[in-house]
Structures are given as C-alpha cells and as structure tokens.
Simulated assay, not measured.
Amino acid sequence: MAERGLDATDRRIIAALQVEGRLTIQELAERCGLSPSPCLRRMRALEAAGIIKGYAAVIDQARVGLPVSVFASVKLERQREEALDRFEATIARWPEVVDCYLMTGQRDYLLRIVVRDIEAYERFLKEKLTRLEGVASIESSFALGQIKRSAALPIA
C-alpha cells in the first residue's frame, strides 16, 4: 500500500491513532465513520503494509531522570558503505542514542542523545562515541528546552 494508495478513510484511521494509539477498535471505528470489522481490516492492512510500524507510550524524559538532550553531529573519516554500516550498527545498540539520521552537508550523522546530566554525556562521549572506529569529528549542542515534539506526521 503506497502513500498515494491511502484513501480518506485510511488517513482518518492514521490521524486518530497518531493522537491516541490506545483507542479500542470500537472507538476508532466511531471516530472514522466505520463499523468495527471494516475498521479492524483497514488497520491490519495498514500494519501489514508497514505504514503503521508499531504503538508506543510517549514518556516525559525529565520525569524519568533523563532531562538532557544533546544533538551530536558526527563526521566520519570515510563515507564508504562498510564504514557507514559499521557506524550505524554500533549506534543502534546504544540506548542513549534515541534518534540517528544520515545527513547531507558537512556532517554525516545527526544524533539525539538523552542522558541524566552533563557528566553522563561526557562519559558517553569518552567511553563510546570517541572510541568508535572511523569517527573523524564530533560537534555537540545541548538543547536548552523542548518547544515541540511530535511523532504525528501531517497526513491530512
């Protein structure tokens, strides 16, 4: 099911689930103007197509003791496929890295790292990121505050 294959009903289902992923099928069907059986079929089809990738709770990072977000721009020594694959495989195993993007421009990757405090970031940097083979340079920026965070895509 390609993006252009989404009809208005699929978009309503996606929009409703992005706001509240814990809706019952009955509630979702009511919000989307369907009966429960067709709604469930459509939702399962969206899941099977990989459009709906999963469901998760949104956690307040400060309230769980992880108030610091650091954005680290990483430049690799080489941009060969095997170097990129090795970097990505390692980063994927580190729980502190909550987002990682392959970038264009001066830097190769942009990471969002979530930690308890500046000292925890320093340990992460010294014990993990700077020891990673192939890293040429790292630039870190500390977020002063979060203005907006959303997992909802502008599907409408």
Rank of each mutant, 00 (worst) to 15 (best):
A56Y: 04
M103W: 02
R149C: 13
R11V: 09
G145C: 05
R41K: 14
S35Q: 14
Y101P: 12
R42D: 03
R41G: 09
I25P: 09
I147R: 09
L40A: 14
L66S: 01
V70K: 09
F142A: 03
R31Q: 14
L66Y: 07
T24I: 00
L23I: 07
R149S: 15
Q79L: 13
E30R: 14
F142R: 10
A89V: 01
A120R: 00
A152R: 14
M103E: 13
D10E: 06
M1G: 13
E133C: 03
E96W: 01
T9H: 01
E139W: 08
A62W: 00
A83Y: 10
I51K: 11
R123Y: 00
L40E: 09
M103V: 05
S137N: 12
F87H: 08
I51W: 01
K126S: 14
A48S: 14
Q18H: 10
V135C: 05
L111A: 08
L66W: 00
K128V: 08
G105S: 08
E81I: 12
S73I: 00
R22L: 14
L76K: 03
Y109V: 04
D108F: 04
V19T: 13
M1T: 13
I147S: 08
G134W: 05
L102P: 03
S69E: 11
M43I: 02
R93S: 13
P95M: 01
C100S: 15
D108T: 11
E82K: 14
A49V: 06
I118T: 05
A57F: 05
I91N: 07
F124K: 00
V58D: 06
T9N: 05
G105L: 05
L76E: 03
L153S: 05
L34H: 05
A16F: 03
V58G: 04
A72W: 04
I14H: 07
D99A: 14
E127L: 08
G105E: 08
V97D: 01
R116K: 10
I13G: 13
E122C: 04
V58L: 12
A89K: 12
L102T: 10
L132S: 04
C39L: 03
D7P: 10
V70T: 03
A15M: 06
I14G: 07
E27L: 10
T24P: 10
K53Y: 07
C39D: 02
D7C: 06
R63M: 07
R11P: 06
D85A: 15
A8Q: 15
M103P: 11
L111K: 05
R44S: 15
R131S: 14
S35C: 06
S73G: 12
T9P: 04
I52M: 11
R44D: 13
A143D: 06
G33K: 01
I118H: 08
R86M: 12
A45T: 04
I147F: 02
I91T: 07
T90I: 09
L84K: 10
R149P: 11
E47D: 10
R11K: 15
C32V: 05
E30S: 15
R131C: 13
A48I: 02
K148P: 03
A15E: 15
D85Y: 01
M1H: 09
L34R: 08
L153P: 02
G65C: 06
E30F: 02
T90R: 14
A62H: 12
R86H: 12
V98W: 00
V70G: 04
S140H: 04
L28Y: 01
R42H: 05
G33I: 05
D117I: 03
I155Q: 03
A152F: 00
I113N: 08
L111Q: 03
I155N: 07
